[in-house]
Design a binder for these strands. Structure first.
Lengths: 336, 336
DNA sequence: CTGAAAGCGCTTACAG
DNA sequence: CTGAAAGCGCTTACAG
C-alpha cells in the first residue's frame, strides 16, 4: 500500500541504489535523472521509511526527554523548548515522566536504547546513577538538563542553583527577615540541594543560622502539609524559601488555610518562574530560570555530542534572576 | 559493541531463529533451552532492537500526540495522562506542538508516518483536514481528543462542550447577570465554537441575546488585550465567559490593569480546570474537564483501533462540570 | 523441537 | 554516471 523505494525505482526505470542516492543527495546523478526521480517520488507521495534507513546505519532522529513530570509547568515549558529546538535539528522527542523514581528512570533508559534513540536529555533526579547503564553502555549520548552528576563527564546545562538560593536569602535579609524556613525537594535532586546550600550560606554570611527544624523536604503533593508543619511550629518563620513554584503554591495554600496573610504575616519565595508565579494570589516573588534557553542549550549540547562523540563535554551554567512580585515584604508582625 | 541476536545465538550454540522464538515466547522450545537462552540474554544485557523488529512486520510501539502547545497546562496534563496510559499498553509517545497551525500539523503528520508510528492522537485544531492525508493515506490509525471532525469516521473522546458552555451561562444567569461577553479561541477550534454556541443558546433560552460585539476570538498571547477591548466598551459586561483558563487569566490581568475588581465589578468564568484555576487571584470559577480520563480514553480507543482496524470507531462524550470558586458572584455595580 | 533461507526497506562500498 | 550485491537486526513460514 505504501510506496517503497522499489516502487519508485521501477517507475523510474532505474535501480534502487540510484533512487537512494537522489534521496540522500549523494553521488553524481545527471541533473535530468535527479529531477525526474524527484518528481516521481512527489507524485507517488513517497517518503523513505525512517526505520529502514535507521537500520542501515543512519540515525533514528528521535530523542528522549526524561523529566519528573511533564504536567509540572516548569517541565512542560522545558519540553516545549526542547521540542522546538529538536525540530530545528531534525529530531522528534519522546516524553518520559519519571516521578523522580529510579525505577522509572531505569525503565525508560532501557526502552529508549531499545528504540535506538540518538540521544537523551536527562532532566530528572536520580539516586543511583547505575540506572542509566543501558544508555551509558549502549553508547547512547546523553546530556543533563537542570540536574547533574559531577562524577560523570556529560554535557550539561544548569542554572547556578547555589547563586539562586543565595539571591533568595539576600532578598529576604534585605527586607529585614531573620527567622527563615525552607521547603526543599527530595534529597536526590541535586539542584534542590544546591539551592538550600546557597540559601543557608548567604544567611550565615550575615550571621544568621538556619534552624534545621525549619528545613523540610517535601514531595509536591505534600507541599501544603509540609508548609503547615512549618507554620504551626512554636516559632514560625517570617519567610519561607521554596525550592520551586509548585512548593510555593502549597505554602500559599497552607497560609490561606491558617489565615496567615501573605506577605504581611509571612513572605514566600519560589523558584522557577513558570506561568504559575504570575497568576497566584498574591503573585509570587521567585527566582527565575531561563527556561527556554535551558531547553535550547540542552539539545544543542546533545546534538553536538551526537555529531562528535569524542569531544570534551561542555558544562554551561546560566544565571538565575530574582523576580520580585507581591509575596514578599518586610516582616510586619512581631512574632514572639 | 551492542550485542545482537547473532551474538546470543552464537553464545548459546543455536540459530538466531531459535533465539527469536524465545524472545517472542513463540514456538515450542524445550524448557531448558529456553531458560538457558534467557540467561544468556540477561548476562549479555541483550535487548532486541525495536527498529529491526519493526522493519520485519512488528509494531514500533510509538505514538504521536498532536496538541497546540505542550507548555499549556491543559495539554501538559493531557500529555501526562496519555504518556501513562500509553506506557501501560507498551507505547512511547512523541510530543508534537502545532500552535494550531495547519502547516505544523501537516509537517508532523508526514514526519510521524515516516517514523512508522503505530497511531496518532490528535488534540489540535485543524482548518483543512487534508493536512492529515499522510496519516490517512499512510494507513496510520488516529483518534481525536477534545477536538473532532464529524465528517470523518474516527474514534474520539470529547467533552460535551455545548453543555459546558450552557452550564457557564446558567451559572451566570442564576447569579443575576444579564450583560455578558465571551472570549473565544480561534474559529478553527471546534470545541471553542461549541462552547460559545452552548453559552449563547442558554442565554437565549431565558430571553437574553448575546451582543455580537461582545464575542471576541483571541489567541492566547492576546487574551489580555482582547479582554481589555471587551471591558473598555461603552457598555462593559458584568460577566465574561472565557473558553479556556489561560484566556481567563488574560481577562484577570486586564481587569487588574484597569482597576476592575473581580468578581465585584465583573465575574469571570474559565474552562478546563487546570492547576492554574486553583491558584489565580481570585481562584477561578471554571468548567472542569475530566482531563486524566480524556487522555486515558483517547489511548484506549487508539490502541483498540490499532488492534482491530476494521471495527466501527467509537465516540465517547464526557460531561464537564461547573467548578465554583471565587471569580464569580452576583453583579454588584449598576453599570449604566 | 530447531535450523536454513527469504525478506522487511533501506544504504553503502564496489564495479564498470 | 549507474547497477548488482551485501548487509543492517530482526521475524516468519517452511523443512526436517
Amino acid at each position: 500500500m505504501k510506496a517503497t523505494i522499489y516502487d519508485v525505482a521501477k517507475e523510474a526505470g532505474v535501480s534502487i541504489a540510484t533512487v537512494s542516492l537522489v534521496i540522500n543527495g549523494k553521488g553524481k546523478i545527471s541533473k535530468e535523472r535527479r529531477e525526474e526521480i524527484r518528481g516521481i517520488m512527489m507524485r507517488m507521495g513517497y517518503k523513505p521509511s525512517m526505520i529502514a534507513s535507521a537500520l542501515t546505519g543512519k540515525k533514528t532522529y528521535a530523542l528522549g526527554l526524561l523529566v519528573p513530570d511533564i504536567s509540572n509547568p516548569f517541565f512542560a515549558e522545558i519540553a516545549r523548548a526542547v521540542e522546538d529546538e529538536g525540530q530545528r535539528h531534525g529530531y522528534s522527542v519522546f516524553i518520559c515522566s519519571t516521578d523522580n523514581k529510579d525505577e522509572k528512570v531505569g525503565h525508560y533508559a532501557a526502552l529508549l536504547q531499545q528504540k535506538n534513540v540518538d540521544g537523551v536529555i536527562i532532566g530528572t533526579g536520580i539516586r543511583e546513577l547505575s540506572v542509566l547503564d543501558p544508555l551509558l553502555h549502549g553508547g547512547v549520548p546523553i546530556a543533563f538538563l537542570a540536574r547533574e552528576f559531577r562524577s560523570v563527564e556529560v554535557p550539561s546545562v544548569v542554572v547556578d542553583d547555589y547563586a539562586g538560593g543565595a539571591a533568595a536569602a539576600e532578598h529576604l535579609i534585605a527586607l529585614g527577615h531573620r527567622r527563615l524556613a525552607v521547603l526543599a525537594e527530595q534529597d536526590s535532586i541535586s539542584s534542590s540541594r544546591e539551592r538550600v546550600r546557597g540559601f543557608k550560606q548567604a544567611l550565615e554570611a550575615v550571621g544568621i543560622t538556619l534552624d534545621p527544624a525549619l528545613v523540610l523536604s517535601s514531595a509536591i503533593k505534600e507541599s501544603k502539609a509540609s508548609a503547615l508543619a512549618l507554620m504551626r511550629g512554636e516559632h514560625p518563620p517570617t519567610g519561607i524559601f521554596c525550592c520551586n513554584d509548585l512548593l510555593a503554591i502549597g505554602a500559599l495554600q497552607a497560609a490561606k488555610e491558617m489565615g496567615i496573610r501573605i506577605p504581611h504575616d509571612c513572605s514566600i519565595i519560589g523558584f522557577d518562574d513558570t506561568v504559575l508565579a504570575s497568576v497566584t494570589d498574591p503573585p509570587l516573588t521567585t527566582i527565575a530560570q531561563p527556561i527556554e534557553q535551558m531547553g535550547q542549550i540542552a539539545v544543542q549540547l546533545l546534538v553536538r555530542k551526537i555529531g562528535r562523540p569524542g569531544e570534551r563535554p561542555e558544562r554551561i551554567v546560566l544565571r538565575p534572576e530574582l523576580s520580585i512580585r507581591q509575596s514578599s515584604m518586610a516582616p510586619q508582625t512581631e512574632i514572639s
